[in-house]
């Protein structure tokens, strides 16, 4: 029952969001087709005299000349059927094709960095709040506090400067060496990983700090709980108390936070991809926004909101497995 309500709520969220992202670019005074044609004529030096006519023709082709309400109804219908429409800027490619091309890069980067930082951050946070930790572990808290607030984009910039530009240890950007062919050889994969290292690090550093601080706050609260005290009275070793009594309880709210944080992670990821010139969703979105490419913008935004809501649902389903108290309440 609870899950059904939840699914309905999330569907509603998706609908509201897609309505917003449908209308915003369309009520803009900018016209993507005219801008595209103007850009073409600038780069080729050929300015067609009947520009307005061509614009009209294209508008008609993509159905942009119809009233907004009708466009909305038709487009939402096609989205429901799984068709996100064509790209205005890179026609005849469809939005799905573009997203699918970019997706593996983004997923690879975001999932790996999120997992790494969630595990690492929570471990660090738990350790810094644990009274028996050595001093140097607790000392990590101060840099964490600073790091938490710094956008990954800036960390990436600094990493590029120090690691790539100064020390020349890693490439400054791109997904792989220019001139290599995309293939599944060990050499190519190694090259890709080398290129992913700095963007990954930029993303991990600040979210590790985010999780660590959250965990630390929870940890301090949990330490005052009677059950941790009683566990000590039982003569349990520090390791067992740490694992079963302290971390397991402190981790629960963190898991709930995971879904919401993912929205933020995507945003940071998009910016970092932009910075490193990676061919992921970030780069695609950047281009689409510059060109006001309605359908691609909608497609990416829609895709992001779907993944965030699906993740929220997943957390809702998994959470009762971790916290026995919830199961009873939802019955």
């Amino acid at each position: 029952m609870y899950l059904v309500r939840r699914v309905l709520f999330l569907l509603f969220v998706i609908w509201v969001t897609s309505t917003i992202i449908f209308f915003i670019p369309r009520i803009s005074p900018r016209n993507p087709i005219r801008e595209r044609l103007a850009e073409l004529s600038r780069s080729t030096g050929y300015a067609p005299k009947d520009l307005e006519k061509i614009v009209q023709a294209y508008n008609q082709k993509f159905g942009l000349d119809k009233p907004l309400a009708q466009q909305y109804a038709e487009y939402m219908g096609s989205v429901l059927r799984g068709d996100l429409g064509p790209s205005l800027n890179q026609y005849p490619k469809t939005v799905w094709e573009l997203i699918l091309e970019a997706l593996p890069w983004t997923i690879g980067l975001l999932i790996s960095t999120t997992l790494i930082s969630f595990v690492l951050g929570n471990m660090l946070g738990a350790l810094t709040a644990w009274p028996k930790s050595p001093r140097w572990v607790k000392g990590l808290m101060a840099p964490m506090m600073m790091l938490q607030g710094v956008p990954p984009y800036l960390l990436g910039l600094l990493l590029i400067f120090f690691v790539a530009f100064r020390a020349k240890l890693l490439p400054m950007g791109g997904a792989y060496e220019i001139g290599t062919r995309v293939s599944f050889t060990a050499q190519f994969i190694f090259d890709v990983l080398r290129h992913q290292l700095l963007p990954g690090l930029a993303l991990v550093l600040s979210s590790v700090a985010f999780w660590a601080l959250g965990m630390r706050g929870m940890g301090i609260t949990i330490q005052g709980e009677d059950y941790v005290n009683f566990a000590e009275h039982k003569g349990l070793g520090a390791m067992v108390i740490f694992r079963d009594y302290y971390v397991r309880n402190a981790l629960l709210p963190q898991v709930t936070g995971l879904a919401l944080a993912f929205g933020q992670v995507i945003v940071s990821g998009v910016l970092v991809e932009q910075l490193f010139g990676l061919p992921g969703l970030g780069g695609l979105l950047g281009k689409a926004i510059t060109a006001n490419d309605y359908f691609v913008i909608f497609g990416i935004a829609f895709f992001i909101i779907i993944s965030v809501t699906v993740l929220m649902l997943l957390v809702d389903i998994v959470y009762p497995l971790l916290d026995p108290r919830i199961r009873i309440d939802s019955k």
């Binding site: 509603f12 915003i24 670019p25 803009s28 900018r30």
Partner: peptide, 19 residues
Amino acid sequence: VLLPIPVFLIQVLIAGAID
């Protein structure tokens, strides 16, 4: 309803839509 939406995305759209 607004909470799960990545707000930045919408902000980008609005800023992009403005001349």
